[in-house]
Design a protein around this nucleic acid. Sequence first.
DNA 1: CTGAAAGCGCTTACAG
DNA 2: CTGAAAGCGCTTACAG
Lengths: 323, 323
Amino acid sequence: MATTIKDVAKKAGVGVGTVSRVLNGGQSVNEETKKRVLGAIRELKFVPNQMASRLRKDESGIIALLVPLVNHPFFANLAYFVEDEADKFGYSVLLVSSQRRIEKETNILQRIRSREVDGAIFVTHFEHSEEDLKDCPLVSIDRPLSLNIPYVTSDNYEATRKALEFLIQKGCKRIGYVGSKPLVDSEVLKREEAYLDVMKEHGMSPRVKNDVIFHGDEINVVENFLQTYPDVDGVFASGNTMAQVLFEAALQKGIRIPDDLQIVAYDGSFKQWSDNRYYTSVEQPIEAMAREVVRLLIDKIEGRDVPTRTMLNTSFQIGITTK
Amino acid sequence: MATTIKDVAKKAGVGVGTVSRVLNGGQSVNEETKKRVLGAIRELKFVPNQMASRLRKDESGIIALLVPLVNHPFFANLAYFVEDEADKFGYSVLLVSSQRRIEKETNILQRIRSREVDGAIFVTHFEHSEEDLKDCPLVSIDRPLSLNIPYVTSDNYEATRKALEFLIQKGCKRIGYVGSKPLVDSEVLKREEAYLDVMKEHGMSPRVKNDVIFHGDEINVVENFLQTYPDVDGVFASGNTMAQVLFEAALQKGIRIPDDLQIVAYDGSFKQWSDNRYYTSVEQPIEAMAREVVRLLIDKIEGRDVPTRTMLNTSFQIGITTK
DNA sequence: CTGAAAGCGCTTACAG
DNA sequence: CTGAAAGCGCTTACAG
């Protein structure tokens, strides 16, 4: 059996409470005693059992990060910064890819109730009942899961407007929109909204392909889009997978970029994978969003008040996909 | 306070032991009693406290996945499949990006000792002392951390040979090698070995740039490589970031691919991000490696014997970067 | 400043 | 088949 706090206490000739106190520094301990305890700890190579401490304190020190898929640049980046930020506050991160299976999402709520985790960053595309969400410390991204669940988002509407104005300024006359629509209410919907508004304001007719699809189907959407609107000279691509698939499909069709077709991508996951500025794009502030969402969750877990909606600013990167 | 097993026992008019038994199905329980207990559980919405159960059973049900950075396609994919496989066995995954900080790696070992996690998949580029690694259930990828720590790898040497033979067959005469060298002994080193062997066998002079670098410095390596060996007509790029950076740098310099320069990438993370077959490449069997490494770790945690080295097969994908 | 004791919520021999 | 009790390894009032 591993050595316990009892062994340390015996060796140092003190009570277990005293060992606990030097370990956690609650009340002050006599310097002399402290030294003896520390010595015993070192000698016995004592490592406190976290499970016991957590049971006693009723806090797991773990937060769950639930995303549809970690092996997607946006979520991989999110995971990276979430872990980094959580670590600063002494929390660990349990990673769960829901794979869009609702049972796996509901499971996380159960794990909060079972005290396995203290709370969760809950990125889902499903609806969950108030009943299930109740009393669970949760935070979300780009959408309100329910009335009092805080979420972090970015200025989707304004950023999309700016991106489109940029394309127009660069001479585009027939601008399309290609994306994948979220299943539920989400700030991402504001991108299409902004697109339609800008088109109307400029008297341009909309060319949209924005359906609910699964990861992997982007190529069909893009093929379909290019076939339906062969005359487009500018495209707003929502999501970097979509942008990349579009870029490559266009190249394969012999369409020159940016000469025949200009593209603005909406996302923020490119820079991380290779330090180029390949696509002209709206970059989501993934790092800031990740850090903020972690802080919100911890505030919530620890019982502090948090704002319901936190909006962060995107940035605009000019790359080689526009003139 | 949340409802406990005691509340359920009282409500059902049984002892707590009985409740535990219907929960965990250890010994058989009278059907009638069982029904009463289940009813009480449902009525009280009882969810067993995992922390208590874990303390008692001395198992956390959590494994740690330690990688240098999760926001890298290879590791993001690894994380995805690791979590999926662990879930099948009832284990959760704690995610840690070491960011190549050795303290953060050592910290994981401490967390195994503190019973916070049952074991770890330990992907590191540092050396750790036998003393530190001792008694920790660990498994690794592409390198033996220490004598009795199992690891999973793929056929780096053979796969590299095949890739080079392919370039030669496609007419390349001046083949280069660009990569980033691991800090420590690793199966990845066999790629350069294979490259040098093939060059020698074909009487070709080696053109290598393979230094120890940090993520983000790929662009400098590539620029340097292209400047040093402006005459290359074929490149073996180790790692997909390297391949991508090379591809883009070449394009920017007006080098046509595959006409002027053919590239074979070594990795296996492209397919996941967009369903193209963009690069000709050796694909690492990430999914298989992930699943296998999880099974090895669980076997080790649960006290079963495991092989020290498990080798899996790569596959070869022909894309548009070769003729 | 410090020790003895109660208790966190479970599981598991033990005795019946 | 089942209940009472001990114990997992901590933390934290409580009393001194």
